[in-house]
Design a protein around this nucleic acid. Structure first.
Length: 828
DNA sequence: GAGTTTGAAACT
DNA sequence: CAGTTTCAAACTC
């Protein structure tokens, strides 16, 4: 054990100075990183640490908070170190805060390793250094010896406190498929080791806990350094390959993870993805672009760094402090600025998460999703919140959305520059598409979803959030990646608040396991904001929930399907006037109102913003959105009607998927206006398809490189806002798709209901294979189902064959440009 | 905030 | 399938 490590260390220092090393460095695209004495190995450790990987929630929290706090402290030293290579004192200085003296590098390593393992650390008494020493060696072995070791620790730790070196190494190897990366890591790890040794030499006394903390910080160092480095580089663009690499890397954990670790892995992935997005943003800010595999390294480190940060507030404070500290030091300005920017990013991220994490809960600690999994409660919150926040309807556990909405997530993933959540999206599609398999029965779908929901919920949330970002607005292309964008931040904040207005059940006797419970009915877990009692609709009782769901679905396969669906008229042939019929959307089963006259929210039709239909058994129907008898609200007093509609609109807005709104990135009223004008404009059009195609062509001409987006996005409502379509199409499609019934409410009576929008929407629908739609919803589109996951592009009907082909072609093309925004930032 | 009304969901 | 009960949201005060 010792021998290898020591040898390695010695070799490392020599190696670094050797010509061979330089040569290799020159060859390696990662070279820039090399200049920075980053302790990548620690990065890996950091990576591991943050995690959620640790089963024990408390531990995770502790660790994370600590890390977050420390990280920046250490960042300063690291900076110094980076700027002043060889100046160990600085490093030690930073470390001294937490690090305790040790006699040998080995010990330090051990400590570090143990530190990386939150669980191990926490569980162990502070005054048992000896034990650590004994145990650590093993850890160190792979930690130091293997270039990839840095990555290993996390996994090993994660899986079990007891290091499974072999397994870890294997996973690590996978993780480091990229040779260059591996080199980088190895070098960095070696450097880290050296640094540690230096630090140790300078340090005299040591408190185990402190040491651990210090180690943690040290581990995080590389992140900071990398960030700095990143900025220093001033020109890096995300290389598609890099992204792929990242994706691969990110996925690795999943592959290797066992069932128990799945959630953790997901969390990590989410974090990573988010980080990627942020990193990308950062790179974009920097401006100049430079393609290099280094990016991946940066991503990794950044991601890792991110993972470490859990407590937002702490983070912020710490950062601010750090900035100040760093600013006091020469050459730290840059870092400070970086930090600030990071802060901004993180802040935005926080906001982004907030809706998910805090939306429903005021939970203070809700860290990023990364940490969530380590804490059951947090996980719960995240899981539920993601969805609960009606804001993100399709997110989280909204099984309905998943089941009913064919998704083009894949397409989005490929097309969208929103690489930041590629992986998430992937999972997303996994969930959403899978269940949609034509032959699958609802129950199966449901089961499938159920199986995944628990694991992916948080993840999903994240995905939604991130996913949305890039596609929010046509004119926001530049902002897509600019997390710091004021507008974006504002939007996020708004949504945070909005999300708080989501479903909050108040069940007392149903245990939230019956359809009485809105949360349960919506496929959501109950969250903090809920006032339910004896609630079982929580991740903790997942099995129970699933079981119950299954039972309910066995009785009524559509029990969890959206209640409001778009009637067949939605998918009429083009030119068919039937699509102008009043009841474009109807309640699935119809209401049974007797006293409310279908003018109050007691009426599900009214609540859903749709008119009553022949399916309704209501009496004295006066539904403002359309009476059962077909009579419209014509005889309803104008004022009353308006009031009712307003009422309904309010209700609808709550129901409307927040994510749709987010995608809109503009007020719904605006949307309404737009759609209205659009309707008028297209009033004279005889063929909607013609219009759509025309618009598409026009936009294509204007934005050849983005021409595909509209389609894909159209097909996928939630991600709809095509940046290429700054024009009407997006709005119209959005309106028609996202709102259907709900948005309609914001407009004038159905008759006015944006014809063009509808037509376009129908066009979209045409491209949605019926076999992908739940049986009951076949040939119909549900309001809710459409918004979150949207439709997946698929073989259209014959009359639209050309369009479909067109779409298909476009989609393919679209997937080609990996990071349009990055490469063409200026253009946009 | 408590009490009432209402209609969906669940049960028989 | 119909009738009844239970339930929680919507509504009212």
């Amino acid at each position: 054990m010792d021998t290898p490590v020591k040898n390695q260390l010695a070799t490392t220092s020599k190696f670094e100075d050797s010509p061979v090393f330089n040569y290799i460095s020159n060859l390696s695209p990662i070279e820039p990183v090399k200049s920075i004495p980053t302790d990548h190995a620690f990065t890996s450790l950091t990576f591991a640490s943050p995690s959620s990987v640790f089963p024990s929630p408390q531990i995770g929290i502790h660790k994370e908070s600590r890390f977050s706090i420390r990280r920046h402290q250490f960042s300063d030293p690291s900076k110094n170190e980076s700027s002043q290579i060889g100046n160990k004192n600085n490093t030690s200085e930073g470390v001294s805060v937490a690090v305790q003296p040790s006699d040998s590098c080995t010990e330090n390593f051990e400590c570090c390793t143990s530190a990386s393992s939150a669980r191990e650390i926490t569980n162990k008494p502070t005054d048992e250094p000896s034990e650590l020493v004994i145990e650590l060696p093993n850890t160190l072995k792979y930690d130091c010896g293997s270039p990839d070791s840095d990555m290993v620790p996390p996994d090993a730790i994660k899986a079990d406190a007891a290091p499974d070196i072999a397994g870890t190494l294997e996973s690590f190897d996978e993780f480091l498929r990229d040779d260059s990366k591996g080199k980088l890591h190895s070098f960095e790890s070696e450097k880290n080791l050296r640094n540690i040794c230096s630090i140790e030499q300078n340090i005299e006394a040591c408190d185990w806990v402190s040491f651990v903390s210090g180690a943690a910080d040290l581990l995080n160092l590389d992140s900071s350094m990398i960030e700095e480095h990143f900025e220093a580089q001033n020109h890096k663009s995300v290389d598609p390959g890099t992204i792929s690499f990242l994706s691969t890397v990110l996925q690795l954990p999943q592959d290797n993870a066992n069932d128990v670790e799945k959630t953790e892995t997901v969390g990590i992935i989410s974090c990573k993805q988010r980080e990627i997005g942020e990193t990308v943003t950062q790179s974009r800010e920097i401006g100049n672009l430079k393609k290099t595999d280094q990016t991946s390294a940066i991503f990794s480190s950044t991601l890792l760094d991110k993972l470490v940060v859990s407590d937002l507030s702490d983070k912020v404070d710490d950062k601010g402090k750090k900035c100040m500290d760093s600013s006091s030091k020469p050459g730290s300005h840059r870092l400070c600025s970086i930090r600030r920017r990071c802060l901004v990013f993180e802040t935005s991220g926080a906001h982004k998460n907030k809706p998910i994490c805090d939306s429903n809960s005021s939970s203070p600690a809700i860290p990023s999703d990364c940490e969530v999994f380590s804490n059951e409660k947090q996980a719960q919150i995240n899981t539920a919140s993601g969805y609960s926040s009606t804001m993100l309807p399709g997110i989280g556990l909204h099984l309905n959305a998943l089941a009913t909405a064919p998704t083009d997530n894949k397409v989005v993933k490929l097309e969208s520059p929103a690489f930041r959540s590629k992986q998430i999206i992937m999972l997303n599609s996994m969930v959403s598409c899978n269940p949609l398999t034509p032959g699958q029965n609802p129950l199966d779908k449901s089961l499938t979803l159920k199986t995944l929901e628990g694991e992916l919920a948080p993840h999903y949330n994240e995905a939604q959030v991130t996913e949305n970002a890039p596609q929010t607005s046509t004119s926001a292309v530049n902002e897509e990646f600019d997390q710091s964008s004021p507008r974006r931040k504002r939007f996020k904040l708004e949504h945070v608040e909005e999300s708080n207005a989501c479903k909050r059940c108040n069940c007392k006797r149903s245990k939230c396991l019956k359809l009485y419970c809105e949360c349960f009915a919506a496929g959501l877990y109950c969250v903090e904001p809920c006032s339910c009692q004896d609630c079982f609709n929580k991740p903790i009782h997942e099995s129970t929930v699933l079981e119950t769901r299954r039972n309910i679905e066995s009785r009524n396969p559509l029990a969890f399907a959206p209640k409001v669906i778009r009637s067949a008229d939605v998918v009429p042939e083009f030119g068919d006037e039937s699509n102008k019929t009043p009841a474009s959307a109807r309640h699935k089963r119809g209401c049974n109102c007797k006293k409310s006259s279908c003018l109050k929210k007691y009426c599900e039709c009214f609540q859903g913003g749709v008119g009553c239909s022949i399916n309704c058994r209501c009496r004295g129907c006066k539904n403002a959105f359309g009476r059962k008898d077909g009579a419209e609200e014509t005889d309803i007093e104008g004022e009353e009607l308006e009031a009712c509609k307003k009422n309904a609109l309010d209700a609808s807005l709550h129901t409307v998927k927040e994510d749709d709104k987010e995608h809109l990135d503009f007020p719904i009223t605006e949307l309404s206006e737009n759609s209205r004008s659009l309707s008028q404009e297209s009033e004279g059009c005889k063929n909607a398809l013609e219009i759509s195609l025309q618009e598409v062509n026009e936009s294509e001409k204007e934005h050849p490189d983005l021409s595909i987006t509209p389609f894909s996005e159209i097909s996928r409502p939630s991600i709809r806002m095509p940046f290429s379509f700054s024009g009407k199409l997006p709005f119209s499609s959005l309106l028609s798709v996202g709102s259907s019934a709900q948005f309609c409410t914001s407009q004038k009576p159905r008759t006015k209901y944006s014809l063009s929008s509808r037509l376009k929407f129908e066009t979209h629908l045409q491209m949605i294979p019926e076999d992908e739609t739940p049986e009951a919803l076949n040939s119909t589109s549900d309001v809710k189902s459409t918004s979150p996951n949207s439709k997946r592009v698929s073989p259209p009907k014959q009359e639209f064959g050309s369009t479909a082909r067109r779409m298909g072609r476009k989609l393919i093309l679209r997937s080609i440009p990996p990071f349009p925004s990055l490469s063409s930032t200026g253009e946009q």
